[in-house]
C-alpha cells in the first residue's frame, strides 16, 4: 500500500478516526511518529547526528549485500544534508517504499532435521504487544516510550535469554529513530542512551552487536520487517549471501572483512533478536538461535 495520497487516494473522504488525525495534517508515518522522536530528543538530548549513524551503519551493511536497493555507503553528513521531510526527519532518515516479496517456512524442529540447511530454532516470540493505549499511545505514559518496553517483559522470559546474549539484532528501521527507540526499550541499553548506543559503533559490522546486517528497510528494501527475519536466519546458518567466494565444498568462504563489497557474516552468530514495529504503540519480537 502506498502511504502518500497525491493521486486518486487524496480524493477519498476522510472518515472515522482519521477525522482526528489526517484532517489535521497527520498523514504519513513520519508525521505520525515524529512526536515520539522529538520528545526523545527533548527528554534525553538525543541528536539527529546520533540517529543518522543508524543510516550510516545500515548503508555499510548494504554495500556488502548484492541484493540491496541502496548499496552506496553514506556518512552522517550525507544524512544531515538531505532535505527535511518532517522535523526531525531528513530524507535519508526515512526508508523507501519498494515492491518485493519474502517468504519464511516454519516447521517443527523434528521435521526441520531433514532439511538441507542447518536448523534455526525459534526460542521465543512476543506477538502484537501494545502499550495500554494503542491508537494515541502517548496518552498513556511517556511519548518516547514504545511497545518494546512491554514486549520485552514477554520476550526475554519466553526466550530464556537476555539482550546481553544476543549477537545480532534486526530492528525495524522504517526510520533511523525507530531502530534507536526499539533497541533502547527492549533493553539493549538504558532508557535515554539509545543515541549513544547506535552511534558508538556497536550496531555496525565488526561491532559488539550489529543491527540489520542486510541493510534493513533503509537500504536493502522495505518488507515490513521480513527481510530482517530472513537475514538473521542466514546469519544463524553462517551462510549470509554476500560477495565472498563459494568454496569447493559449495559453502561460502567468509572472510569477515567488512570493507565495502566484502563480507557481512558475523563470527560465531548463535542468538539473534528481531524487533518488529507497527507504530510506536505496537510491536512484535522474536528470538532465534542456531541449533
Amino acid at each position: 500500500m502506498r502511504i502518500g495520497g497525491t493521486g486518486a487516494r487524496s480524493a477519498v473522504p476522510i472518515a472515522g478516526d482519521m477525522l482526528h488525525s489526517r484532517a489535521y495534517g497527520w498523514q504519513s508515518a513520519g508525521q505520525l511518529f515524529s512526536f515520539t522522536f522529538l520528545r526523545h530528543m527533548y527528554d534525553y538530548g538525543t541528536t539527529p547526528a546520533q540517529v543518522a549513524a543508524v543510516r550510516v551503519a545500515h548503508s555499510e551493511h548494504a554495500s556488502n549485500n548484492p541484493k540491496a536497493y541502496y548499496k552506496q555507503r553514506l556518512a552522517v553528513e550525507d544524512v544531515l544534508a538531505s532535505r527535511i521531510i518532517c522535523k526531525p526527519l531528513h530524507l535519508l532518515d526515512c526508508c523507501v517504499e519498494t515492491d518485493n516479496a519474502t517468504a519464511v517456512v516454519v516447521t517443527s524442529a523434528a521435521r526441520a532435521r531433514d532439511g538441507r540447511h542447518p536448523r534455526v530454532l525459534i526460542r521465543g516470540v512476543a506477538g502484537r504487544v501494545c502499550k495500554p493505549r494503542v491508537d494515541m499511545h502517548y496518552q498513556h505514559g511517556p511519548i518516547s516510550t514504545v511497545a518494546g518496553k512491554y514486549a520485552r517483559e514477554i520476550l526475554w522470559p519466553n526466550s530464556g535469554v537476555g539482550p546481553e546474549e544476543v549477537d545480532v539484532t534486526g530492528s525495524y528501521d522504517a526510520f533511523t529513530f525507530t531502530t534507536m527507540l526499539q533497541l533502547e526499550d527492549y533493553g539493549f541499553c538504558k532508557k535515554g542512551e539509545g543515541g549513544q548506543y547506535v552511534s558508538d559503533g556497536t550496531i555496525r559490522l565488526g561491532g559488539r552487536r550489529p543491527n540489520n546486517t542486510s541493510g534493513g528497510h533503509l537500504c536493502e528494501g522495505y518488507t515490513h520487517g521480513m527481510n530482517m527475519v530472513i537475514e538473521n536466519v542466514r546469519q544463524l546458518r553462517h551462510d549470509v549471501d554476500d560477495s565472498c567466494p563459494i568454496g569447493a565444498d559449495g559453502k561460502r568462504q567468509h572472510s569477515y572483512d567488512y570493507r565495502e563489497g566484502g563480507c557481512r557474516q558475523i563470527k560465531q552468530c548463535e542468538v539473534t533478536a528481531n524487533l518488529g514495529w507497527a507504530m510506536p504503540g505496537t510491536g512484535s519480537a522474536m528470538v532465534m538461535r542456531r541449533h
Binding site: G4, G5, S10, G25, F35, I84, I85, K87
Partner: peptide, 9 residues
C-alpha cells in the same frame, strides 16, 4: 513539529 513535505494534494 513542522511538516515540510506534503503527502496529499
Amino acid at each position: 513539529r513542522k511538516c515540510i513535505t506534503p503527502f496529499s494534494l
